[in-house]
Amino acid sequence: SEEKKKAKERLERLGASSELARELLDRANGNAEKAERLLRKLL
């Protein structure tokens, strides 16, 4: 979806690899905010 694509791009801008961004979104069930929080914990 367009929303998921935007979320993935945002995670990548924050420093996630394409693969990591995809994994985070999967774990967050597509929830962009939750995926971002997970990423911030990792960085």
Rank of each mutant, 00 (worst) to 15 (best):
A28I: 02
R27N: 06
K8V: 15
A35R: 00
R37A: 14
A32E: 08
R37I: 13
N29W: 07
E33Q: 12
E33W: 11
L24A: 02
R37P: 00
L20C: 12
R40M: 15
R22F: 10
R37M: 14
R40Q: 11
R10A: 07
R22Y: 10
R10P: 02
L20K: 03
R40W: 14
A35I: 04
A16R: 01
N31E: 04
E33N: 09
R13G: 07
E3A: 13
D26T: 09
E19I: 07
R40A: 11
S17D: 08
A7H: 06
L24W: 04
S18Y: 05
N29T: 03
S18D: 10
K34D: 13
A16E: 01
K34S: 08
K5V: 11
L25G: 00
E3H: 10
R27W: 15
K8A: 13
L38D: 06
K4Y: 15
K6T: 10
E9F: 04
K5W: 10
E19W: 12
E19R: 09
L38Q: 05
G30E: 03
E36G: 03
G30Q: 05
N29Y: 07
E19C: 04
R10F: 08
N29M: 10
L43N: 05
L43P: 02
D26M: 13
A21S: 04
R27F: 10
K41R: 13
L39W: 07
E36R: 04
S17N: 06
E36Q: 05
E19A: 13
R37Y: 12
L42F: 11
N31D: 15
L24R: 00
E36V: 11
L14P: 01
E3D: 12
L11F: 02
E2A: 11
L25S: 03
E33R: 13
N31M: 04
K34W: 14
N31I: 06
E19F: 05
A7K: 07
A16V: 06
E12F: 04
E19L: 08
A21V: 06
D26R: 14
S17F: 04
E12K: 07
E19T: 08
E2N: 10
G15Q: 01
S18T: 10
S1W: 13
E23D: 12
E9D: 08
S18G: 08
K4C: 10
R40F: 13
E3R: 10
G15M: 03
A35V: 02
L25M: 07
L42R: 04
L25H: 01
L11K: 01
L42T: 05
R40N: 09
K8P: 03
S17A: 04
